[in-house]
């Protein structure tokens, strides 16, 4: 017998499938946080692989800010139908209407922060004990230190100073009533790994990831979509450009990249040549040096 070469994508896939199966085995009521972005799409695809030929043992939860690209919603609905999965939508608009959160005002108003309340309320309403997310450690410096099974107290808070030790591949999901976990099966993947995997497996993506003509405007050096939910300053003008999304959040915080990439190969080549991180286009991270850590402590994704 000789050693077979296991490629890094095979090894990452094996690790993620292992983690998803641990979630199904150790929790009562897990859910996949599905944003319609490539990372949550890859998670859903891995979950399909992990449990085939059984159906997904988790529903998908979409926290809808009400400011979504239509393409994201269309993709989401088609995927749910194809997998025969259950979809649950948590509405930020409903949280606003119920007075749970207050809408931000001004030009840079975003519902990104408000999502946390809707997310925690939905988790509590359905009594989910594990929320599976597509966060990766290479994305952001606070995420670089987060565990794969990440404990949340009964207020949904993360305590970065007192995280459970996590060794080998042994995950400890024990908790008290009312507490839950966030689980990150693709923690060890990089942006490039995700794209290479999508290419290798030929995973279908929302059309937003490929270059297309769109009405856009520029703010603080970033291209943003000129959609009705965006309030333009008098100095800002709308133009049509060939753009694509490098990451997909809601419209208010998704920077668009000028791009000619029509295929996965072209996207991969573009990312290999780029010198800015993908979250460099996310205005929500630029609010302060520890913006992500502060949001995460409060219960953000």
């Amino acid at each position: 017998m000789s050693n077979n070469i296991i490629t890094h994508l095979q090894e990452l896939e094996a690790e993620s499938i292992y983690i998803l199966r641990e979630v199904a085995a150790q929790f009562e009521k897990p859910v996949i946080l599905f944003s319609g972005g490539k990372d949550s799409i890859v998670i859903t695809y891995l979950a399909y692989k992990a449990f085939f030929p059984a159906k997904l043992p988790f529903p998908l939860l979409h926290i809808d800010t009400g400011h979504n690209f239509q393409e994201t919603l269309d993709y989401r609905d088609a995927l749910v139908k194809k997998l025969g999965a259950q979809l649950i939508v948590g509405s930020v608009q409903a949280s606003i209407d119920a007075g749970r959160v207050k809408e931000e005002t001004g030009y840079n108003a975003s519902r990104n922060m408000l999502q946390t309340t809707t997310l925690l309320d939905t988790i509590e309403q359905y009594k989910f004990d594990a929320a599976i997310g597509g966060a990766r450690r290479d994305e952001e410096k606070a995420r670089a230190k987060e565990r794969i099974f990440s404990h949340r107290d009964e207020f949904g808070q993360w305590n970065p100073k007192d995280q459970r030790p996590e060794l080998w591949n042994i995950f400890n999901a024990k908790k008290d009533m009312g507490e839950h976990f966030r689980v990150f099966p693709i923690s060890n993947w990089t942006e490039m790994d995700v794209w290479q995997y999508i290419y290798q497996e030929q995973i279908e993506l929302p059309s937003l990831y490929y270059t297309h003509k769109r009405r856009v405007f520029q703010r603080d050096g970033q291209w943003l979509a000129a959609e009705p939910c965006m309030k333009l300053k008098p100095t800002e003008t709308v133009v049509e450009k060939e753009v694509r999304c490098r990451t997909i959040g809601d419209i208010t915080c998704t920077g668009l990249t000028l791009s000619k990439a029509h295929t996965l190969e072209e996207i991969i080549a573009e990312i290999a040549a780029t010198r800015v991180t993908e979250r460099g286009g996310r205005s929500d991270d630029k609010r302060s040096e520890t913006a992500m850590e502060d949001r995460k402590k409060a219960g953000y994704f």
Binding site: A144, K145, P160, K161
Partner: peptide, 29 residues
């Protein structure tokens, strides 16, 4: 500061937790 990601670490100038970093060359990840 690239690897010291947590607020407490930056304030105290010490690393208190394992940080994971990723890089690739044409030969290996």
């Amino acid at each position: 500061l690239l690897t010291d990601g947590l607020r407490a670490e930056r304030e105290q100038g010490i690393t208190i937790d394992v940080a994971y970093r990723y890089f690739a060359t044409p030969k290996r990840k």
